[in-house]
Design a binder for these strands. Structure first.
Length: 803
RNA sequence: GCGGGAGUGGCGGAAUUGGCAGACGCGCUAGACUUAGGAUCUAGUGUCUUUGACGUGGGGGUUCAAAUCCUCUCUCCCGCACCA
């Protein structure tokens, strides 16, 4: 027997697969299709991380298995290559970002290939390829034409160190997701995408897809839909009224004051009526200086100032109530103003207590002097005029209708989701394909002039003024208006990194198409993606964005399905051996290349699947890697114990049928760790018997192949099994043969196992009782005792209760 | 604070219509083979006061039988977080 040398056999089989085009998709559209998708990587300069192969191997396993089962499988790979790190590297080393990208892609591709994934490399896409971003720009133009893209002057999240604007989703606890630095507010004219218009559908259609629960919950939370009413509070002595949003219109009679956000426009409008403008201004300044972090800090005292000189009127009690400003009311949510019901809202209660404002109980059940009483269901209304005596949920219904009839308010749905800030002031991104003409306004670049190519610039450095480096390219910026032919200027902002990844799964379907995103027939065959696996960190970013774009493409008839992905799962992160996140500075980074070189790709794959629950974070263990290598060594030695024979070895038959079932199911349910454990167990069984037939080996190799494709192909060849392993079909199991005929039945006395007897699976209680009597240790526990009760579960357990 | 998930050997983790707790792997112990190697093989490995008892974060309960169900409680992780 030769030595097991992974480096030799892995290269050999990777070449054979490539040469024979083993993994290419089939043109035969009558076959059932399976579209497996993993998130395409950002090709960074650091190269592949051991975290990458985990999800890739998982879906590679499923893809390989499905091919054996006769599916037409699409399992593509590409590059999400626009982005800041590349641009920064380019600036630092004075190399064109295009060149940096090319190098990084080459490195990533070589690394991925060495692990033996069955990707459809003939369908590789790259978001920085003009033939690709042409269509990213095309989609943007379609959105612009439908009014979903608009330019808007607004304060955005600005990262001073990256010199870039950020979407809300990119800000984590007030800090830049990328560099960790503090994010400040900066007013800028930005391109926005109206994702809010799709908010309802993005929530509702989650019912039609199979995503793991935490993803659905997180998206629902992020979109933050709440149903309520917009109610008008008239400002005393003025024509205006102050609009508030509330989900508890039933508590309206308990609204004893109002609070508006510090930035509320009302203040400026009535500055002449306000008596304490100095105080107000002082508070506004104080509020604006607070960072987002301070604003959201826990257990802080409520602050605020009463606006003297203007008051509002409670529309149901007709009483005049004061208006305050406070930073606990946000301008960015609802109307920027609230009605305060201190008796039944914790925040209002705290505020009222601090500033000694009246608290009026309107829902019975608590002690509103001690704390706010919250009951959104069946509490009974008091002190509440027309809704007195009703339960909360009925009161909401009645008062809402009444307010609408009186023209005092209307039903309204509010969302936390904001429109998507889509401009970036950077070089390495898709140019926004619009020009500005003084006469015609914003005009899209005609389709036949797409793509708007990124121009060659001298300098990619971002500017402190917040303008894109492209703004300095006067020749490029100056253009003519496609509409009137007059002078015009190009938009110099570029798109965010999330643009290219919002639709890439469509391009894989027909990556070389020059006339459309992809052929409609091909799209209809392959879409939706059957299984998409990715990281939890993309739940409210890429995953949400791409669902939004897909829905838009559905609306304009490009695709025929409402949702892009039928199923979404998420993998856990791989941490360093010290249980900390892998990073250069911690010095705990594992390079997958080193594992491949030292132990082989099959070991890396097996280990990453065996390491633990796929959905949970796990820490790396070098010893664990060695254990998997040892397992594969034992698999390798199976060649020594193979004997001819086209039937399963008699004693192994049940085990083999069982494992076919187990592995088939486990590969589909992300339980790779238990599938591998079962394969190890069967191997131990093989070795204890000492010889196996070719039939035993054949099934074993096919089952293991998706995890460890190289070694299994090689062993298949060595054992001279028919043809090549990758052409084999997935084994079937026989439900009858899974059931053990003979079992070791545990015998319990008073619930404790006192012995075991070997019985036929369908033996009756009487037979088992007789056998149990032959067992000394069982009899010993029965001696001198009286049998009170016997529980017998056929084929499982026999419990004797004694006194 | 609200919502969700999880607590099992020295470690990663198995076992969920209630039915043998600790599969599989790591680590560890002993032995074999070896001019010592992080190789391979064999046996063992939950704990203890070991003819037995105890044991799935802790307390209580249901049951012939509980890691699994109920109840109280502690701890950790994740998500949201002044969202009206």
């Amino acid at each position: 027997m030769r030595e097991y040398k992974p480096n030799e056999i892995e290269k050999k089989w990777q070449d054979i697969w490539e040469e024979k085009k083993v993994f290419e998709t089939d043109d035969d559209k009558s076959k059932p299709k399976f579209y497996a998708l993993v998130e395409f990587p950002y090709p960074s300069g650091q190269g592949l991380h051991v975290g990458h192969p985990r999800p890739y191997t998982a879906l590679d396993i499923v893809s390989r298995k499905r091919r054996f089962q006769g599916y037409n499988v699409l399992f593509p790979m590409g590059w999400d290559a626009f982005g800041l790190p590349t641009e920064n590297f380019a600036i630092q080393h004075k190399i064109h970002p295009r060149e940096v990208t090319k190098r990084n892609v080459a490195m990533f591709k070589q690394q991925l290939k060495s692990i033996g994934f069955s990707f459809n490399w003939d369908r590789e896409v790259n978001t920085t390829d003009p033939n690709y971003y042409k269509w990213t720009q095309w989609i943007f133009i379609k959105m612009f034409e439908k009014g979903l893209a608009y330019k808007h002057e607004m304060p955005i999240n600005w990262c001073p160190s990256c010199k870039i604007g950020l979407a809300n989703e990119e800000v984590v606890a007030g800090n830049c997701e990328r560099c960790g630095g503090e994010v400040i507010r900066k007013v800028k004219n930005q391109w926005m995408l109206k994702i809010t218009e799709y908010a309802d559908r993005l929530i509702n259609d989650l019912d039609t897809v199979d995503y793991i629960d935490r993803i659905k919950t997180q998206q629902i939370n992020w979109i933050g839909r709440s149903e309520g009413m917009e109610v008008n509070f008239k400002i005393s002595g003025k024509e205006d009224s102050l609009k508030v949003f509330t989900t508890r219109p039933d508590t309206l009679y308990g609204a004893t004051y109002m609070v508006i956000a510090a930035e509320h426009p009302l203040i400026d409008k009535y500055k002449d009526d306000i008596e304490n403008m100095d105080q107000i201004k002082e508070y506004q300044e104080y509020a604006s200086k607070k960072s987002d972090f301070e604003r959201t800090e826990l257990s802080k005292e409520k602050t605020g100032v009463e606006i003297k000189g203007i008051r509002a009127m409670n529309p149901v009690t007709k009483k005049e109530i004061p208006i305050w400003i406070s930073d606990y009311v946000l301008m960015s949510y609802g109307t920027g103003a609230i009605m305060a019901v201190p008796a039944h809202d914790t925040r209002d209660w705290e505020f009222a207590k601090k500033f000694d404002l009246p608290i009026v109980e309107v829902v019975k059940g608590g002690d509103v002097e001690k704390e706010a009483y919250i009951d959104t269901e069946s509490g009974v209304l008091v002190n509440s005029g027309i809704i007195n005596g009703l339960e909360v949920k009925d009161a909401i219904e009645k008062i809402s209708n009444w307010l609408e009839e009186q023209g005092l308010g209307h039903k309204k749905t509010n969302y936390k989701l904001r429109d998507w800030v889509f401009s970036r002031q950077r070089y390495w991104g898709e140019p926004i394909p619009l020009v500005y003409c003084d006469k015609c306004g914003w005009v899209p670049v005609p389709e036949d002039e797409l793509p708007v190519m990124l121009p060659e610039v001298e300098n990619y450095e971002p500017t402190d003024t917040g303008e894109s480096p492209l703004a300095n390219m006067t020749d490029w910026v100056k253009t003519t208006c496609p509409k009137c032919g007059g002078g015009a200027k190009r938009e110099t902002d570029t798109m965010p990194q999330w643009a290219g990844s919002s639709w890439y799964f469509l391009r894989y379907i027909d990556p070389h198409n020059n006339s459309e995103i992809a052929d409609k027939e091909e799209l209809d065959y392959w879409m939706p993606v059957d299984w998409y696996n990715g990281g939890m960190e993309h739940t409210t970013l890429h995953l949400l964005y791409s669902r939004f774009w897909h829905k838009f493409l559905y609306d304009i008839g490009v695709v025929s399905c409402r949702e892009p992905y039928s199923k979404r799962t998420a993998h856990g992160m791989i941490l360093g051996e010290n249980n900390e996140k892998m990073s250069k500075s911690r010095g705990n980074v594992i390079n997958p290349d080193d594992i491949v070189n030292e132990y082989g790709a099959d070991t890396l794959r097996t280990y990453e699947m065996f390491i633990g629950d796929f959905e949970k974070g796990v820490s790396w263990s070098d010893n664990g890697v060695r254990g998997c290598r040892r397992y594969l060594e034992r698999v390798w030695r199976l060649q020594d114990i193979v004997v001819p024979g086209e039937k399963y070895t008699k004693e192994l038959e049940t085990s083999i049928h069982k494992i076919i079932k187990k592995v088939t199911e486990d590969y589909e349910t992300l339980k790779f760790n238990t599938a591998i454990a079962a394969l190890m167990e069967l191997l131990n069984e093989f070795n204890s018997i000492g010889k196996i037939t070719k039939a035993d080996l054949r099934t074993y190799l096919i089952l293991l192949n998706p995890v460890a494709p190289h070694i299994t192909e090689e062993l298949w060849e060595i054992a001279e099994l028919d043809g090549m392993l990758h052409d084999a079909t997935w084994p079937k199991y026989d439900e009858d043969k899974i059931q053990d005929k003979v079992i070791e039945m545990p015998i319990q006395i008073n619930g404790k196992v006192r012995g075991k007897v070997t019985v036929k699976v369908d033996d009756t209680q009487d037979i088992v009782r007789e056998k149990a009597k032959e067992d000394e240790s069982i009899m010993k526990h029965l001696e001198g005792k009286q049998v009170v009760k016997e529980i017998f579960v056929a084929g499982r357990i026999y419990n004797i209760v004694v006194k």
